[in-house]
Amino acid sequence: KKYKVVEVKENKDGTVELVVENENGEKKKITLSKEELDKLKAGDTVELK
């Protein structure tokens, strides 16, 4: 499934919390490390299994 990044929030521990949404409007929260996030920004599309 493809999800669009709608919100990006940095946590104090250096991880980043993303809120992503698919075309049905379903939202998910995922947490990434700073390194994983470096290639993402709001409006990008991510694929989740």
Rank of each mutant, 00 (worst) to 15 (best):
K1G: 07
K1E: 05
K2Q: 05
K2M: 13
K2I: 09
K2W: 11
Y3T: 00
Y3L: 02
K4G: 01
K4Y: 04
K4N: 02
K4W: 05
V5L: 07
V5M: 03
V5W: 04
V6L: 11
V6R: 03
V6K: 05
V6M: 08
V6N: 03
V6Q: 03
E7W: 15
E7C: 15
E7N: 09
E7D: 11
E7S: 13
V8W: 12
V8G: 01
V8K: 04
K9M: 08
K9E: 03
K9P: 00
K9H: 11
K9T: 08
E10M: 08
E10N: 09
E10A: 07
E10H: 13
N11G: 06
N11K: 06
N11W: 08
N11Q: 08
K12I: 10
K12T: 09
K12C: 14
D13H: 03
D13T: 02
D13A: 02
D13K: 01
D13M: 02
G14W: 01
G14P: 00
G14H: 02
G14C: 05
G14T: 01
T15R: 04
T15A: 03
T15N: 05
T15I: 05
T15F: 07
T15G: 03
V16K: 04
V16P: 00
V16L: 07
V16S: 04
V16A: 09
E17G: 06
E17C: 14
E17F: 14
L18W: 03
L18H: 00
L18A: 07
L18P: 00
L18G: 00
V19N: 02
V19F: 06
V19Q: 05
V19E: 05
V20S: 01
V20Q: 00
V20W: 03
V20F: 05
E21S: 06
E21T: 06
E21V: 12
E21A: 08
N22W: 09
N22G: 13
N22C: 13
N22A: 13
E23A: 07
E23K: 04
E23R: 04
E23L: 06
N24R: 10
N24C: 15
N24Y: 10
N24K: 10
N24P: 01
G25Q: 03
G25R: 04
G25F: 05
E26P: 01
E26H: 08
E26L: 09
E26G: 06
E26K: 06
K27H: 12
K27E: 04
K27F: 13
K28A: 08
K28D: 05
K28H: 14
K28N: 07
K29F: 14
K29R: 14
K29S: 14
K29Y: 14
I30P: 00
I30F: 15
I30T: 01
T31M: 10
T31D: 01
T31H: 06
T31Q: 07
L32I: 11
L32T: 06
L32Q: 02
L32A: 06
S33A: 12
S33Q: 12
S33V: 09
S33H: 11
K34A: 10
K34R: 14
K34H: 12
K34Q: 07
K34M: 13
E35G: 14
E35S: 13
E35F: 14
E36K: 12
E36T: 11
L37S: 15
L37R: 13
L37H: 10
L37I: 13
L37A: 15
D38V: 12
D38F: 12
D38T: 13
D38G: 15
K39T: 12
K39N: 14
K39H: 11
K39A: 05
K39M: 08
K39L: 09
K39V: 07
L40W: 13
L40E: 01
L40V: 15
K41D: 05
K41L: 08
K41E: 09
A42R: 07
A42H: 07
G43C: 09
D44E: 10
D44I: 06
T45G: 02
T45C: 15
T45Q: 03
T45M: 08
T45V: 11
V46T: 05
V46P: 08
E47D: 13
E47Y: 09
E47V: 04
L48W: 03
L48A: 09
L48M: 06
L48H: 06
K49L: 14
